[in-house]
Design a protein around this nucleic acid. Structure first.
Length: 280
DNA sequence: GTGCTTGTTGGCCA
DNA sequence: GTGGCCAACAAGCA
């Protein structure tokens, strides 16, 4: 599930429930792959007794910060979710990390274990946090930066390029499809074949989808929607793309599905036309 | 049983 | 060295 906006949704859920509280007990499954990048023992030492103070997201990652300079990093992978439970409730089979606070427990659940946690002790941000590319909504992401990157990846299909986290932090499978659908560009179009006009459109839609996904999914205020996807309007591709037989909400023509760039891809054949490859 | 799955990494090859 | 492709990771669901 987790892409940019879903990650923000989960961060907020933990933060709203637990900010200001101390860790009374940490429950972990040290043998799990979840801890491949952070020993469960160091988490125990560093977090027990610490107070959750701040949290932030960057791309698909979250950092929860505790007083005395402890950083807990979380990546949800393919199937990870963050929930809360009644304090001390028994852990389920796939609950790999449970943080008991003073009045609530924070739970990291991840059946497939592609996600993981990290830990860092110290006031300064660790490498695994600072090396994440700057947000697509920040001034650092310019049209020129996009143009340069597309040129460097000229022969790769756009769908694959949009999934590269080094340049498009937080974009995942559905957001990439949504962006290309809005920009009316075929997902298999080679990245180096876009016109200046198309690059301008792509740039605009990348930012629009990021902004609106955050607004619709993550919630504007302190109230979180119960169902993660409840905020996505039917005018988006999102609500039509999953099942076979989906209809493009703009053209009313059947959507197409195929593997492009190694991932299942959905597009609207009526508005996303593959052109002959014309490299500049 | 089969064939998928909203992510990332490392290895191979041109 | 760079870019592109693919398998692997693991569990659940239709």
């Amino acid at each position: 599930m987790p892409e940019l906006a879903e990650v923000e949704f989960y961060r907020k859920r933990w933060h709203l429930a637990g900010a200001g509280q101390r860790v009374t007990k940490l429950r972990t499954h040290p043998a799990k792959k979840t801890f491949r990048e952070a020993s469960a023992a160091s988490l125990q030492r560093g977090l027990t007794g610490a107070r959750l103070t701040e949290s932030e997201t960057a791309a698909k990652q979250m950092a929860f910060r505790f007083d005395h300079g402890a950083w807990l990093g979380v990546h949800l992978g393919m199937s990870g979710v963050l929930t809360t439970s009644a304090l001390g409730a028994p852990a389920d089979k796939h609950d790999h990390l449970v943080i008991d606070l003073e009045s609530v427990s924070l739970v990291f659940t991840d059946p497939r274990m592609f996600g993981g946690v990290r830990f860092h002790a110290g006031p300064d941000a660790p490498d695994w946090w600072t090396r994440i590319a700057p947000s697509l909504l920040s001034p650092a992401f310019t049209r020129q930066a996009l143009t340069d990157f597309l040129r460097r990846r000229a022969r790769a299909p756009l769908k694959a390029v949009l999934l590269m986290q080094e340049r498009f932090p937080g974009i995942g499978n559905w957001m990439a499809d949504e962006i290309l659908w809005r920009a009316a560009i075929h997902p298999a179009q080679p990245a180096g074949s876009l016109t200046a006009q198309e690059i301008a459109t792509l740039y605009r839609e990348i930012r629009t989808v990021c902004r609106n996904a955050l607004k619709n999914i993550a919630g504007a205020g302190d109230l979180l929607p119960h169902d993660l996807n409840v905020g996505i309007p039917d005018t988006w591709l999102f609500n039509h793309r999953w099942r076979n037989g989906g209809i493009c909400p703009r053209t009313k023509v059947h959507l197409a599905r195929a593997e492009i760039g190694g991932r299942t891809t959905c597009w609207s054949p009526a508005r996303q036309i593959l052109r002959e490859k014309v490299l500049p």
